[in-house]
Design a protein around this nucleic acid. Structure first.
Lengths: 248, 248
DNA sequence: CCCCTTGTTCGACAATATCGAATGTCGTTC
DNA sequence: GAACGACATTCGATATTGTCGAACAAGGGG
């Protein structure tokens, strides 16, 4: 593990929507680094265009981050290919669409699209939830046994009215998900929220992410449910296809 | 300058739309690093979520890049606030909208939105052009004398039919741009392309970027021109306002 | 099943990041 | 307008840490 690289990553992560502009002192303090050390790393990051310094000697994220973002797989696919379907879904069901990935035992939300009138949900890009308590998480667990093992090792706790806390019951549900090709969650991580998720596969057939739609149960159950599931599965498949995955 | 941080940035930049998935060997070779060194850095980046390793031991960009991207100032503002106007403009004039920043003597395009039927333009996110030969570049030069000096030091060369190659003429045009609040470029960097650009200011009143619209001259000159300029200036102003800039 | 390619680990050396302090620069207050 | 204070930046010495070469492991193809 290379320390300075870790520190650099942490420095970049200091910048947020709440604090988009920071000085050296603030950065150093946040991370418990010596100002001098922080300064060296920050200068390097500026040179690379990852950060930018303004005339007031304050730093902000730079253009290079935007460039990197553009090269993340499925980022474009979502925006260019899947967006029409995604837009339709969120407008129709006043919901929110996420793309989620598995990382260090939990689910991370990496993309988020919602309509203005959608029911507010407490997720933002980079936020995490237990995998076993979300529709996206369950899809990820269903198609990757390593993820499942990591999750079991961490233990299952009660997150919402319907959270699955029994390992065998979870395994049974995951088998069901593999058979159907999608997962649902009904108030498993928070009250009164219904979610549906489908898997995104990479070129090698490995699951790398999940798309999901979350919204109020009333809109999403019943006959609408089938339509949502079909749309979501086709969205997921079209993204997978762009990543080079060939369905058997 | 911290070497390992620089190397880490270069490693991240190796990933592109053409090569979204790379092995350690490929990365090391691309950058002339020893595989062992590359491996250490890559492992660290994986640990931070900047890269991800799949079961085939291939690496790709990870979720953290998406998170960082979300914290870049004006990224959101463009997508949430300015997009309606931007969308209308590109559809109406079959053009392309960019956001550009100044970096190391040239202009870098950091965002790019175009309609499907727009005239193809050879720009992509991260691509560069001489500042004095683009509408965005000229705006950036007009409002920042440091940028201008850097540009002059590099020298002005002929890029298209109408490129400005005389420093005094350039300075005269920049004064004009400051007076009008926008810039135009007419086939200055490539044949038959007409561009209009407006400045984006940060909270401290410093110019940090420019929005521009590029398209075929036929659509954009004449009476349409005024409408485009007004829309573009208001787009730029609304982004500036979100960044905390208060107009005098 | 074996070979060959590719990724991963190991250990010693030397480069280099770190720390503390001193210097510089800006903005603010009296 | 001058002096203060807060902050960024530079400097230099030490020891940490990244680098390199080579040996090891794993995985895929013949």
């Amino acid at each position: 593990m290379i320390e300075s690289v870790k520190k650099a990553c942490q420095i970049i992560s200091c910048f947020s929507n709440e604090e988009p502009v920071l000085g050296i002192g603030a950065i150093a303090e946040k991370l418990g680094l010596h100002v001098s050390t922080a300064h060296h790393i920050v200068t390097t990051l500026c040179d690379e265009g990852v950060l930018m310094k303004d005339q007031k000697k304050k730093y902000r994220l730079g253009w290079r981050v935007l460039e990197w973002n553009n090269h993340v797989m499925f980022q474009q696919d979502v925006y260019e290919k899947a967006m029409p379907i995604v837009k339709e879904l969120i407008l129709r069901f006043k919901g929110t669409v996420h793309i989620a990935m598995f990382d260090k035992g939990t689910v991370v939300f990496v993309l988020r699209v919602s309509s203005e009138e959608s029911t507010p949900i407490q997720t933002y890009i980079g936020s995490r939830k237990p995998a076993y308590a979300t529709s996206s998480g369950k899809v990820l667990l269903a198609y990757n046994s390593v993820y499942l093992q990591e999750t079991i090792n961490r233990g299952l706790s009660h997150e919402g009215p319907n959270t699955i806390t029994d390992i065998n019951q979870l395994k049974k549900e995951l088998a069901e998900i593999r058979k159907k090709g999608y997962s649902i969650s009904n108030s498993e991580n928070s009250d009164d929220m219904y979610g549906v998720a489908a898997p995104i596969f990479s070129y090698s057939g490995e699951i790398i992410a999940a798309v999901n739609l979350v919204g109020p149960p009333s809109y999403m159950q019943g006959s609408n449910g089938d339509m949502i599931i079909r749309s979501l599965k086709s969205t997921a498949q079209s993204i997978s296809k762009e990543l080079g995955y060939i369905e058997i």
